[in-house]
Design a protein around this nucleic acid. Structure first.
Lengths: 210, 210
DNA sequence: GTCTATAAAAGGATAGAC
DNA sequence: GTCTATCCTTTTATAGAC
């Protein structure tokens, strides 16, 4: 199954491809689809225009490749946090911290902005984003909640809804302000506070009564 | 204080201005800042380019005027729902329905997309949007919650946080899917369900325990 | 104040040499 | 496969007539 390579020389084609992807990723995420020009991308990548078009055909395809890449990276990072312990509150806190750190990071904020902005023109990308991000996250967490509910640690009639609620509470206006680039004084210093409060509220709503 | 108008003729300048604003609003909200061209705007407005530039100077200014207009309309619509009755659950439901109907409408969804996408390049617009929309809404609702809490109908230590949580639960993944243009089967038919469930969860978390 | 016509620049994409 | 050089379209913005 191994393709014989004529020499050990590093395949230059792949090097250029990587360079293009890296440059395009940075510019598309930072400037959006319309404002990022192919010219700027070729320049940043250190290649010429025909090379870019040889690899990706046109601007839309390149954009699609970048966004899908980012979405898959996103999922990969989300899967790392699979450590459901027996300690309910600990698991909630770990999950919340991981999720929060992710969605408040600049690369993911930029991905949110771009995908939402271009959703009307790139509906497929919007789907990929949702499935790999919020969709998958919710599903995994719903399974956990369902299990905990069976064990009597929680009282949850609809785990999927509860999972969505947990993540909605967690992102909330803090996430919205971050998407809008609004720096509320103390927002960042009070993230721990926000997480603790989210968990407390969630448990008040779903902890079995007595 | 009344300016004497030389004749009863309608002021043509204002007519054209309105036409430009209407056309620009539609195109900017539908296509975003970059993809909407001044050419398309002039054409749709039925005026010529120099007229547009005479009125608004450049594309950025026109965009700013449009977005700010929309944000103020948004606030106006939000203020209409000020009917806090003594029936807590009724008020929650009315508030939720009004808010939900607003944020799920296409014009407001488009406004969200555009403002978020352009937030890095138009930070001032992002602020105007937040203050007139989520900020004001939260503040008003927090006041109501605070009152209800004093009367013993709710047990809310931090009204602003609780208000944010209420609206976060309410928008949640339903709103995100709408922003992404994802039509979940039954999403629209189950909005009433979603609202009812949000209120139930909120009350489980914040209703006084005996 | 508003138009026709056009300038000036930048964008996406390609032909042809190597 | 990759480059240099270039084409064609579209874009923002303006000069000058009415």
């Amino acid at each position: 199954m191994m393709k014989a390579q004529k020499k050990q020389k590093l395949p230059q084609r792949e090097v250029k491809r990587k360079a293009i992807l890296t440059a395009a990723k940075e510019l598309f995420l930072h400037d959006g689809f319309g404002a990022a020009s192919m010219d700027a991308i070729t320049q940043k990548a250190g290649v010429s225009k025909p090379t870019v078009y040889n690899h990706f055909g046109n601007k839309e395809s390149l954009f699609g490749a970048i966004i899908k890449d980012q979405c898959h990276d996103l999922l990969a990072s989300l899967k790392e946090s699979e450590a459901p312990s027996n300690d309910l509150e600990l698991t909630l806190r770990k999950t919340a911290e991981h999720f929060q750190g992710l969605i408040m990071s600049e690369p993911i904020l930029a991905l949110y902005r771009v995908v939402m902005a271009e959703a009307p023109r790139f509906p497929e990308l919007a789907h990929v984003f949702y499935e790999n991000g919020p969709g998958q996250t919710t599903e995994n967490f719903a399974n956990y909640l369902s299990e905990q509910s069976k064990h009597g640690k929680l009282d949850i009639p609809d785990p999927t809804r509860a999972a969505e609620q947990f993540f909605s509470l967690l992102s909330g206006h803090v996430h919205m302000r971050a998407l809008l680039g609004i720096k509320s004084p103390g927002d960042s210093s009070k993230l721990e506070d926000h997480i603790a409060n989210t968990i407390e509220t969630f448990l008040r709503a779903y902890r079995p009564r007595r």
